[in-house]
Simulated assay, not measured.
Amino acid sequence: MINIRHAAAAAFVVTGLLGAPAFAATADGYAGVVVERSQITVTGHGNVSAPPDLMRLQAGVEVRRATAGEAFKAARTAAAKLTKALLAAGLAQKDLRTSELSLGPEYDNYPKIVGYRATQGVEAIVRDLASADKVIDAAAGVGEEARLNGISFEISDQDAIVVAARAEAFRDAAAKARQYAKLSGRRLGDIVSVVEEGGHDRGPIPFHGVAAMADKASISPGQQAVGVTVRVVYELE
Rank of each mutant, 00 (worst) to 15 (best):
M1L: 15
M1Y: 12
I2F: 11
I4H: 03
R5V: 14
A8C: 09
A11D: 12
A11R: 14
A11H: 10
F12Y: 14
F12R: 15
V14M: 15
T15F: 11
G16D: 12
L17E: 09
L17Q: 09
A22D: 07
A24Q: 12
A27V: 10
D28P: 09
G29W: 03
V33D: 00
V33W: 01
V34P: 00
V35I: 14
R37T: 10
S38K: 10
I40R: 00
T43P: 02
G44C: 08
H45A: 07
P52T: 07
P52N: 06
P52K: 05
D53Y: 07
L57P: 05
Q58V: 14
E62I: 14
E62G: 13
E62K: 13
V63S: 02
R65W: 00
A66W: 09
G69L: 10
F72K: 13
K73P: 00
A75Q: 07
A80H: 07
A80M: 08
A80E: 11
L86S: 04
L86A: 05
L87E: 03
L91Q: 06
Q93F: 10
D95C: 06
L96G: 03
R97L: 08
T98N: 07
S99E: 05
L101P: 01
S102H: 02
G104Q: 02
G104R: 08
Y107S: 04
D108L: 07
N109L: 14
N109H: 12
I113K: 07
A118S: 08
A118K: 03
G121Q: 02
E123P: 02
E123R: 05
E123C: 06
D128I: 05
L129M: 05
A132Y: 01
K134F: 00
V142P: 01
V142W: 02
G143R: 00
G143T: 10
R147L: 01
L148R: 01
L148A: 01
N149E: 11
F153P: 01
E154R: 05
E154M: 06
I155H: 02
D157L: 00
D159N: 10
I161H: 03
I161Y: 02
V162M: 02
V162P: 00
V162H: 03
V163W: 10
V163A: 15
A164V: 12
A169R: 06
R171I: 10
A177D: 01
Q179D: 11
A181P: 03
L183T: 13
L183V: 13
R187C: 06
L188E: 01
D190W: 04
D190R: 13
D190L: 12
S193W: 08
E197S: 10
G198K: 09
G199N: 09
H200W: 11
P204E: 03
I205P: 00
P206C: 08
H208N: 14
V210Q: 00
V210T: 10
A211T: 12
A212C: 12
M213H: 09
D215M: 13
S218D: 08
S218K: 13
S218G: 15
G222Y: 09
Q224R: 15
V226C: 08
G227C: 01
G227P: 01
V233G: 04
L236T: 04
E237V: 11
